[in-house]
Amino acid sequence: MTESARPDDGDRVPLEPPSAAESVSAALGSAARRAGLDPSKHSSTGAAVWAAMGGWRGILESVLPSLAFVVLFTVTIDPETRQGNLPLSLGVSVGLALVFTIARLLAKSPPSAAIGGLVATAAAALLTLFTGRGQDNFVFGFFTNGAYGAAFLVSVLVSWPLIGLIAGYLLGEGTSWRADKRRRRVYTWLSLGWAALFFARLVVQLPLYFAGDVTALGTLKIIMGLPLFAPMVAVTWLAVRALSPRRES
C-alpha cells in the first residue's frame, strides 16, 4: 500500500477494551463450558446436567474418595479413643484420587478436575494427619463453600448476578441481559439459590465438625454434594433456556 493509500489516523476507530464485567463473564462462561454446560451441544436438560456432573467418571471422582474415607474411618473406630484409623482411611482416599488422575492422563482427557481433586484430597489428608482429627479432612470444603456462597451473594448485592454473567457469555449476549428486568430478576433469584445451597452446607455441617462426628459429617457432605448440585443445575438450565431469545438455526 502506498503512502497516499493509507487511511488517515482520524479514520481509524480504536477498539474499546472489554469492560470488567465482560471479562468476568467470559472467564466464568469459559469455565462453565469446560465443565460441560454448552447450549450448542446439549438440547435436553438431562444431557446438560449429566455433562455438568462429568458423567459416571465425574461422579466416581467426586464421591468415591470421600466415601472410602468415611467408611474406613467408621469401621476402624476405636471405642476408647473414638478415632478411626487415619493413615488407612486417608491413604485409600488419596490413592483413589491418584488413580482417577492417572486414568485421565492415560486416556488423554482433560485432567484438570481430577488433578484438582487430587490436590485437594492430598492437602486435606496432610492437615488431618498433622492434627490427628478426622473431621479436619473436611476443612477445605468449608472454605470452598464459603467462598462460592459469598461470591454469589455479593454478585447479587452489586446487581451483577453471576448466573447472568455466565448465561450472557454462553448465549453470546454479553451483558445485554441487564436491560431486561424480567431476566435480571430471574438471574438474581437463581444466584441467590446457589448462594443458599453453599451456605446451607455450612449451616448443616459445621456443627458436626465442632462436635467431632466424622461419620455424620462425611455422610452429609456426600448427600449435600451431587444430589443437591444436580437439581440446581437442572433448574438453572431450564430457567436460562426459557428466557433465552429464540434464534434462527
Score class of each variant (00 low, 15 high):
Leu96Lys: 06
Gly58Tyr: 15
Ile166Trp: 08
Thr128Phe: 02
Asn85Met: 13
Gly174Ser: 08
Leu129Thr: 09
Gly225Trp: 00
Val119His: 05
Leu90Ala: 12
Val203Met: 00
Ala150His: 05
Arg34Phe: 14
Leu106Ile: 12
Pro65Lys: 04
Ala124Met: 11
Pro207Ala: 00
Ser112Arg: 05
Ala68Lys: 01
Pro79Thr: 12
Leu226Cys: 06
Trp160Phe: 11
Ala242Val: 01
Gly46Pro: 03
Gly58Leu: 12
Ala242Asn: 12
Phe140Asn: 03
Arg246Glu: 05
Val214Asn: 01
Val158Ile: 15
Ser43Glu: 08
Tyr209Cys: 03
Glu22Gln: 15
Thr219Cys: 02
Lys221Gln: 04
Met224His: 04
Leu98Asp: 02
Thr101Tyr: 10
Thr76Met: 10
Ala47Lys: 05
Ala122Phe: 13
Met224Asp: 01
Val63Ser: 04
Arg182Glu: 11
Leu190Lys: 02
Leu105Ser: 08
Lys41Thr: 09
Thr121Val: 11
Thr175Ala: 14
Ala216Thr: 01
Thr175Tyr: 07
Gly132His: 09
Ile102Val: 15
Phe142Val: 02
Val203Asn: 00
Leu226Met: 13
Thr128Arg: 04
Pro207Arg: 00
Ser44Lys: 01
Leu202Thr: 01
Thr144Val: 14
Phe140Cys: 02
Phe100Tyr: 14
Leu243Ala: 05
Thr131Gln: 08
Gly116Ala: 11
Ala125Asn: 05
Pro161Val: 14
Phe142His: 02
Ala120Asp: 08
Met224Glu: 02
Ala167Tyr: 07
Val139Ala: 14
Pro245His: 00
Leu202Glu: 02
Thr76Ile: 13
Leu197Arg: 12
Trp189Ser: 05
Leu15Val: 14
Gly172Met: 12
Glu16Ile: 06
Pro17Phe: 02
Ser19Leu: 11
Glu3His: 13
Val154Asp: 01
Thr81Ser: 15
Phe138Leu: 07
Arg33Leu: 08
Gln83Ile: 06
Asn145Glu: 03
Lys41Asn: 07
Met224Ser: 06
Gly172Ile: 11
Ser30Cys: 09
Asn145Phe: 11
Phe152Arg: 02
Ser159Val: 05
Ala200Phe: 01
Ala234Gln: 09
Ser30Asp: 14
Ala27Asp: 04
Leu238Gln: 12
Arg82Tyr: 13
Trp56Thr: 11
Leu64Val: 15
Ala47His: 08
Ala47Asn: 07
Pro7Gly: 07
Leu226Asp: 04
Glu80Trp: 15
Ala242Gln: 08
Val235Ser: 03
Ala5Ser: 11
Asp11Ser: 13
Ala51Cys: 14
Lys108Leu: 10
Ala103Asp: 14
Ala196Leu: 14
Val240Phe: 02
Arg133Cys: 02
Val233Glu: 10
